[in-house]
């Protein structure tokens, strides 16, 4: 165990440092916050102390648990759709310049469009259920998935493709065995951005109009000036965000487990 934690991770720092440093930094921030609130006697409706927030998160866990389910569902389904639709679209974009030129402007328009402004319309169109949340989440998570997938799929070395063509490989095989594996690191980069966007997307939808979810809890609690519940809901959203992010990262580690460290990465780490 000791030997394991001393082994350097990808960027040259030891694993112990990689764990201890962020933990200490986070704890330090929370401690300052806690001390400040107690020292200055800040009223709880303005800013509760972290200890109080954590206590509330667990004391009212039943409410949060029930309300987390629609939020989690919307995040997962929206993100899943972004991947399931985004990756094939990216693939078509890489293989067909015509398709690429056709959709590029549309994609960018969809991205720069302030989607928050669309949220009220979604309610008009789709009502209060899961659907408007999923759509909002999908819309926000879609862009990074497509962009990073295109970058990844286009990054394959032409020589590698020539090589497999000289082996008589079909396009299909060349895609599965060469192009896709080449693209995976970049694609996972996009997925990681997308999953954090997805959390925001669901929250936006719940804010604007919904009758369930952690966002809904937040809006109601704010109306009641129940700042402690607001922070407790935010606390759970942070937990959810971390959970999903690390779930994607774990999946990435698993899928890319054989890649090792590329030498370019080693050299670039210090720059």
């Amino acid at each position: 165990m000791a030997a394991d934690s001393a082994r350097p991770s990808g960027d040259g720092t030891s694993r112990a440092v990689a764990w201890v440093a962020p933990t200490v930094a986070t704890l330090a921030c929370l401690l300052v916050w806690e001390a400040a609130v107690r020292w200055f006697g800040v009223p709880i409706y303005l800013l509760p102390a972290p200890s109080g927030i954590v206590y509330k998160m667990f004391a009212d866990y039943r409410i949060f648990y029930v309300q987390a389910i629609p939020t989690l569902s919307a995040i997962l389904i929206g993100f899943g759709m972004a991947v399931a639709i985004g990756v094939p679209i990216a693939t078509f974009m890489v293989y067909s310049p015509l398709f690429r030129h056709s959709v590029e402007a549309l994609l960018i328009t969809a991205q720069v469009l302030p989607k928050v402004a669309l949220a009220p319309l979604f309610i008009v169109w789709f009502g209060f259920g899961l659907l408007p949340k999923v759509l909002m989440t999908f819309l926000i998570a879609f862009f990074p998935v497509v962009i990073d997938s295109v970058i990844g799929l286009a990054s394959v070395r032409p020589e590698s493709l020539m090589l497999v063509r000289s082996m008589g490989a079909s396009r299909w095989k060349a895609f599965w065995k060469i192009r896709l594996p080449y693209a995976l690191p970049s694609m996972f980069g996009g997925f990681k951005v997308a999953i954090t966007f997805a959390v925001v997307g669901t929250l936006v939808a719940e804010f604007v109009g919904s009758d369930s979810g952690l966002g809904y809890v937040l809006v109601v609690a704010r109306g009641d000036l129940d700042t402690l519940t607001v922070f407790a809901a935010i606390g759970w959203l942070v937990v959810i965000g971390f959970f999903f992010y690390y779930a994607v990262e774990l999946l990435e580690k698993f899928v890319l487990r054989n890649r090792g460290r590329s030498r370019a990465h080693e050299l670039g780490a210090g720059l």
Binding site: E159, S160, S166, G168, R259
Partner: peptide, 19 residues
């Protein structure tokens, strides 16, 4: 089109990182 009864070694090794 590609002639396939062929063994080719490119100027760069073109090995796949994950294999």
């Amino acid at each position: 089109g590609p002639f396939t009864n062929l063994g080719i070694a490119f100027q760069s090794p073109e090995l796949l990182d994950w294999r």
